[in-house]
Write a protein that binds this DNA or RNA. Structure first.
Length: 591
RNA sequence: GCGCCCGUAGCUCAGUUGGAUAGAGCACCUGCCUUCUAAGCAGGUGGUCCCGCGUUCGAAUCGCGGCGGGCGUACCA
């Protein structure tokens, strides 16, 4: 168990001894904001004292009397209003690093009770190009999936693509009358988008076009052979595009169950909801009212439109039911933009209402989480919407990123073979785009900017990848200059089985202590669904490594120091690589 | 009208149960490539954390009231 966990556990036991009724799970041990206070601190006693009108310093003293962490920490200090400050014993720090060097852990622990989580993200629409608006959901969702998996949870990713709905009426009408086969061959998505826009535009002016489109939709929904055939072709063409983008992004889904998958279930589902008295007719539509939920009292949700059609609430309820039956998840996570908050409140409330009324009511309903993110804005601060020709296509963004990175790598490192420079540019460009998306708090609105997305300096992915490449460079040099250098194990890491890690320089100690906080950070990411915590952690790690790199020569040091520093380098590289991988970002050995 | 979110350095933004002297990147200024990769480092400039009141030992963070902005609010998703 990592030292801070041990401290936390013992502190919780001590608090239980002093305040038996207290919720000790809220007693947390966190890294100190400033190393002068110590390595870890707990503020919990102050809030416990406050709610009980106790003297916080006295409570701290009482808890301390029951606390024995002497083999982990130096003397525990009570500071200020009642902070407990812990300072790790150097030997504990060294032992933790050595255990990591032996491959026993990488500063994180698997969850004690693994859960099953379904993550719903990306969800692009058929017949439309993937643009920058899709990147947040895709990258965030993928990162959350990776984080939960790393922590030992069972994760099921599901891409709920938009392959059904009213847009297909217009698409079918356009396809039948205005399709340009050559254009479809060269740029299928562009051609389908053109058809949609064209019919949509004329439909706004002409009722006959609207009606014709509606007719095509009705035919599709009632199983018309020709329309189904065209519809399937549109999906196939779109999925080809999705696959290309996902392959470039390195994003994989366990399932791609689009809206149409749930189509057969919609009618019986709605009937069931009516029979159970959850939905009722209102103004010609079937509606679920939430009179018992104040925040939703004014916001009923439709599950069948007055024209008999179903909408996305219906589909989402059917989807929830399917996921529950199929995977028995503990948690279902939806990664969409914040504008859908009300919708998900309604879906979640309707689902609970429905499930609670089933005869065999499931006592263990999953946690439903809407992980929302801010809107994408243009550089003018106005909503970045699909206006004619102004959408930045995802493929173009990735191309531009790769080109800018190639230009830089060719300047910095012209001697590398061309193929290698291209590969580096791919990894760096892609990493920069992803990192730019993960770094801000997800709830902030997102001002799209080429320069920001493609920045290669400062707090960016290339900075982290650069730190990694520098470490790898040290190891290359070590092998060149000294045949007696530590050997590489099969995993590409250095063997440390007999290694003694000794930390003397301030930069070494600071770096080492930061490594210990990797798992803590991953847990925070999983808890709050916020990958930016990991970005910041890695940026600090790279910064602390750089300080070490500037001040502590590795290869020129005497044998014992050198081996210890090599081990520290290797552990840093592993955490950087693992951390970046969790963000969905690759590393390169040289750049 | 109601609901959600936001307002922190010139710009873009972090800020982990309320916690210790509010941080980073960009931009700008001064230094540092015979020394493990300068996509870097060291230092400097830069703040009424929108305003006011309150709760608290302690507020950027919580409550109330303003001001400003974004989004949502029954048949698109």
């Amino acid at each position: 168990m990592l030292p801070h966990k041990q401290i936390e556990l013992r502190l919780q036991q001590a608090v239980r001894a002093v305040l038996p009724e207290a919720d000790v799970l809220a007693v947390l041990v966190r890294p100190c904001p400033d190393p002068k206070f110590g390595d870890y601190q707990s503020n919990a006693l102050m809030s416990l004292a406050k709610s009980r009108k106790l003297n916080p310093r006295q409570l701290a003293t009482d808890a301390l009397a029951k606390l024995d962490v002497s083999e982990i920490c130096e003397k525990v200090e009570i500071a200020g209003a009642g902070f407990l400050n812990f300072r790790l014993k150097p030997v504990v720090l060294a032992q933790t690093l050595q255990a990591a060097a032996r491959g026993e852990h990488l500063f994180s622990e698997k969850a004690a009770s693994p859960k099953t989580a379904v993550i719903d993200f990306s969800s692009p629409n058929v017949a439309k190009p993937m643009h920058v608006g899709h990147i947040r959901s895709t990258i965030l969702g993928d990162c959350l999936a990776r984080t939960l998996r790393l922590l030992g949870h069972r994760v099921i990713t599901d891409n709920h693509i938009g392959d059904w709905g009213t847009q297909f009426g217009m698409l079918l009408l356009g396809w039948k009358h205005h399709l340009k086969p050559d254009a479809l061959k060269t740029d299928p998505i562009g051609e389908m988008e053109r058809l949609y826009k064209m019919v949509n535009a004329t439909g706004e002016a002409m009722a006959t076009v609207r009606d014709a489109a509606r007719q095509e939709l009705v035919k599709l929904q009632s199983g018309d052979g020709e329309n189904l055939k065209i519809w399937r072709e549109m999906i196939a063409l779109s999925e080809k595009q999705f696959d290309e983008i996902y392959s470039r992004l390195g994003v994989k889904f366990d399932h791609t169950l689009g809206e149409s998958f749930y189509n057969p279930r919609l009618k019986p589902l709605v009937e069931e909801l009516v029979v159970r008295g959850i939905a009722r007719e209102s103004e010609g539509a079937l509606v679920i009212f939430f009179d018992d939920i104040p925040s939703l009292k004014e916001h009923p949700t439709l599950i069948r439109k007055s024209d008999g059609g179903f909408n996305y609430t219906t589909t989402d309820l059917a989807t929830l039911e399917y996921r529950l039956k199929t995977w028995q998840p503990d948690e279902i996570i939806y990664v969409t933009d914040g504008r859908q908050q009300l919708h998900f409140q309604q879906v979640f409330a309707a689902f609970r209402k429905w499930q609670s009324q089933l005869p065999s009511a499931n006592p263990h309903l999953p946690t439903l989480a809407h992980v929302w993110f801010g809107s994408i804005l243009g550089e003018d601060g106005k909503p970045f919407k699909t206006r004619s020709g102004e959408t930045v296509k995802l493929a173009d963004l990735l191309d531009e990123a790769r080109e800018r990175a190639l230009k830089i790598v060719s300047e910095k490192n012209p001697d590398l073979p061309e193929a290698q420079r291209h590969e580096i540019a791919r990894v760096i460009g892609l990493g920069a785009v992803k990192y730019a998306d993960l770094l801000p708090n997800r709830q902030s609105d997102y001002v799209f900017s080429w320069d920001k997305m493609l920045a290669l300096q400062g707090n960016t992915a290339p900075y982290l990848q650069y730190a990694y490449a520098r470490i790898k460079s040290i190891f290359r040099k070590a092998e060149e200059t000294s045949p007696a250098a530590p050997k590489r194990s099969e995993g590409g890491n250095i063997e440390h089985r007999t290694l003694n890690i000794e930390l003397a320089a301030a930069e070494e100690i600071t770096l080492a202590k930061h490594l210990l906080n990797f798992g803590l950070t991953l847990e925070a990411v999983a808890e709050e669904y916020r990958p930016n915590f990991l970005c910041n952690y890695l940026f600090e790690l790279a910064g602390k490594f750089t300080a070490f790199y500037e001040n502590c020569p590795v290869l020129k040091a005497d044998s014992a120091v050198r081996d210890s520093r090599l081990a520290l380098c290797d552990l840093t590289a592993r955490v950087l690589k693992q951390g970046l991988e969790t963000l969905g970002i690759e590393t390169v050995e040289q750049m």
